[in-house]
Design a protein around this nucleic acid. Sequence first.
DNA 1: GTAATTTGTCATTGT
DNA 2: ATACAATGACAAATT
Length: 382
Amino acid sequence: MNTYLTQTLHHCFSPHNAMLLRTDYSTQTSSETRHLQRQESFSQSSCNITNPESLHGSNLTALLSAADIRNLMTHDDNFDEIKLMSLALENGFNAIEVSQQFEEPVSDSGLSLNPSHSTVSYSVSSEGAVEYSNGVKSASLLGLGTVGGHCQEHPNYSHVEYPGDAECSRETTLQQFLHNYTYNQLPSQAAPVPVHHHQMWMKRPNEVKDGCYNSTDAKLSSDEYRAKALRLPFSVDEIVSMPVDSFNAMISKNHLTDTQASLLRDIRRRGKNKVAAQNCRKRKMNAILNLEEDVCNLQTQKESLKKEHSQCSRSISQMKQKLNNLYRDIFSRLKDDQGRPFNPCQYVIHCSSNGSVFVIPKQLVKSEQKPNNEKEQKQKDG
DNA sequence: GTAATTTGTCATTGT
DNA sequence: ATACAATGACAAATT
């Protein structure tokens, strides 16, 4: 019996179902136009306020054994949504007003406002407790917030019904229940969260698996989930990409609390930074690739210069060889006044700067060259 | 189980 | 003053 109920709850609140019904704005076009249109219809939209017909929380807790409750609760121990809920339910947060303002226009959701449509409701008490009701079977899950089964009376519920977005609301709401151990406590009463704020916000979608995580592989980022939980009228993509004027107008038109506006700005900032980081990494990779290409090109250039150098060296040595042969040939043909050949050990051919060619004794060349060599050496030392 | 890589986020700086 | 882009550093997720 208890197992059956647990399975039924899981089935009813299947994140996959919720995902299927999720409005996917990112696939649409002309997003800026939609921003404006949605802002208009958004501020004019309303939602049905119905009388709560849900069962009292103790009814459900009576049906569920402690083991079932533990089973439900051990699906995730994530604390992010505790923060989110306390954020959403903090002083000054008017759930009805925000829900009304944030309700999506029918045309965008693609779902009918027809009252006969399956609806899901949840009630928000002044103390932050939320009650779930699907219109047919309704169950307050208040008792789930406290493992001991303690249940508080909440006489002043604000009961809000969200037609059309039933699955998502159901899922969001249940997940909040399932994972918010302290949701019916005041923020100050909540157990201290042993995670640094920084780490908390850095939790990944996988960690936030109580977030809209469906049975397939599709999943929402933590910001998408936050936006969804606060019933923001725009997708994260739109919040990020809309012009700053539209963004500011959205905040001011909808009379958001400071915390909500701050959350929206955070979502926008994080989204923009995410894109910036991606671009930055792309640029970095491109820069690295370009540098590697440069290195490759320079290595190729170096190799070709090496080849050229050795080619030049070879041709120089060939020319030297030819010059040497020519010198010897000419020298062997030269005769002195008596018709005798010059001794190559004693004489050399000397070319002067004015183009004249002489055969002179080697000592003479050496004595002429010495002073110049000394001068050059002195210049180098100096 | 570990190392390397990828990704999201924050903090900071510059535009 | 404000919004935003760029980027280093960090932590968590993924491979």
